Computed example of a mutant assay.
Amino acid sequence: MPSKKILIIAEVFSENLGDGVIYESLRNSIIKNHPKYIINKIDLSGNKDWCSHISTSTSTSTSTSTSTILLQKLKKIPILKKIYYTYNWYAKTQKACFPDWVFQIKNSDAIVIGGGQLFTDNNFGFPPKIFDVYRLCKKYKKPLYILGCGVGDHWSLPAKFMYQKVINYARFISVRDESSRKNIFKYTKVNSVTHPDFGFSINRNNLISKENEGSILYLNLQPLEDFKYFVPTLKELTESAYFDFWENIIKVCYCNYQISLITNGHIDDYNVVVRLYNRLLANGYEKVTLQPRATKPDELIEQIKNCNYIISTRMHAGIIAYSLGKCVIPISWDQKVNNVWLEMTNRSDIVLDSSVLNKKLTLSEIESLFNNSIKAQGTNLKNAINTIDEILKNNLTY
């Protein structure tokens, strides 16, 4: 009997490398439980590889073209942002993607939409793409599975129409947290099962890679604009004040830790970190280092292997670190962060609320939070992997 071909559709080549980590974790989990399956992939946003993300430019808005600056400003207006993403998909990207999508879906035995906060409607970026996946699956009579996705709590009417079609067609649905399960049921009355984010299984073959002995502290951060978009109470916070928060952490940790700045790979994140790094050097923090910008998921994982502690705003930098046995302090900029960590640890005291950006953390507070993060860490990781394996083994069959 020939091997079954599984097509995973996800944010495979996203510039935010956390998405690539999710894909690799899902792929490895399927192979572990179904070693005879052949896995192929499609990037949901139409990227073919990481080539477009390789540039290590650190240019900021001062050297960006006027048209690019104008576009970025327009995309901050919610309705214009949705119009932009709708136009970009239907007028540009869809035409380029469809020949490959048709060929791969037509020649696969089953389709998996897998991992990440895909069933959301922040900018209408995902609904039309996922709807097109459904239309092709239906046309070619291919079974569709939705695995480990996050689900937003607000869908516009067009998104609701599209997602309801997709979810009702799916043969099986799992989501990465209880809030996502409730959101799916709220909009569709369809039941789903929960399990931790696939990223927590990235180190499935060696749960705790080595003893976490050392004093290397990584600080992982992203643009303040991300916080402002999701947290209205931070609208007035300036980048200078944002940097004050991070500089205070460095100040209280400077004598006890070797500190390095790191990003998830996105060029916007890297530009912000470079600005912070330059400010730190100007203020006399010469021992702080800057990690090179990772351009592929395995590079990011290798970087995080070298630290012992991480304070992270990007969710999957923290997830990778946790999976490697590191001490982690996640900072939430979106409720999904709290939901995912709660599903994994069954604790609400792991994640710091975004209001912390207006505070000055003390060294004792930071170290207490680090200690909280590793309570039952090994047990949590084993349970997460066992749950994922059981769900895939029993439900990804046809």
Rank of each mutant, 00 (worst) to 15 (best):
S3P: 01
A10R: 03
E11G: 07
V12G: 03
V12Y: 07
V12H: 05
G20V: 06
L26D: 10
N28V: 00
S29C: 00
I30P: 09
N40A: 13
N40C: 10
N40W: 03
D43C: 14
G46C: 02
C51I: 13
H53A: 02
I54Y: 13
T58N: 12
T60W: 02
T68K: 10
Q72R: 12
I77T: 06
L80A: 00
K81W: 05
Y84D: 06
Y85K: 01
N88F: 07
K95C: 00
D100I: 00
F103T: 01
N107V: 07
A110H: 03
I113Q: 01
L118T: 06
D121C: 07
N123C: 06
P127E: 05
D132S: 06
C137P: 04
P143T: 04
Y145L: 09
C149N: 04
G150W: 08
D153L: 07
S156G: 08
A159W: 05
K160R: 12
F161R: 13
M162F: 13
A170C: 07
I173Y: 01
D177A: 13
E178I: 00
R181A: 05
K182S: 04
K182E: 10
I184A: 04
Y187I: 07
N191Y: 04
N191W: 09
P196V: 01
F200W: 04
F200A: 07
I202V: 15
I202D: 01
I202G: 09
R204Q: 06
N205L: 04
N205H: 08
Y218D: 12
N220R: 02
P223C: 10
E225R: 10
K228I: 11
K228C: 07
E236V: 02
E239W: 11
A241I: 02
A241H: 07
D244H: 11
I249V: 14
I249W: 11
I250G: 09
V252C: 12
C253K: 06
C255I: 06
Q258L: 10
S260G: 06
I267T: 15
R275I: 04
L281R: 14
L281I: 15
A282C: 12
G284Q: 14
Y285E: 05
E286V: 15
E286D: 13
K287C: 08
T289I: 05
A294S: 14
T295M: 11
I301K: 03
E302Q: 15
I310P: 04
S312I: 01
T313I: 13
R314A: 13
M315A: 07
I319N: 05
I319M: 09
I320Q: 02
S323Y: 12
S323G: 15
L324C: 03
V328Q: 00
I329S: 00
S332A: 15
D334C: 14
Q335P: 08
N338E: 14
W341E: 09
E343W: 12
M344F: 15
N346A: 05
D349S: 10
I350E: 06
L352G: 10
L352S: 11
L352D: 03
V356T: 01
K359N: 05
K360Q: 15
L363N: 13
L363T: 09
I366F: 08
F370A: 14
N371H: 11
K375R: 14
A376W: 07
N380T: 06
N383W: 08
A384P: 03
N386T: 02
T387V: 03
I391W: 00
I391Q: 06
L392R: 00
N394D: 01
N395W: 01
T397F: 00
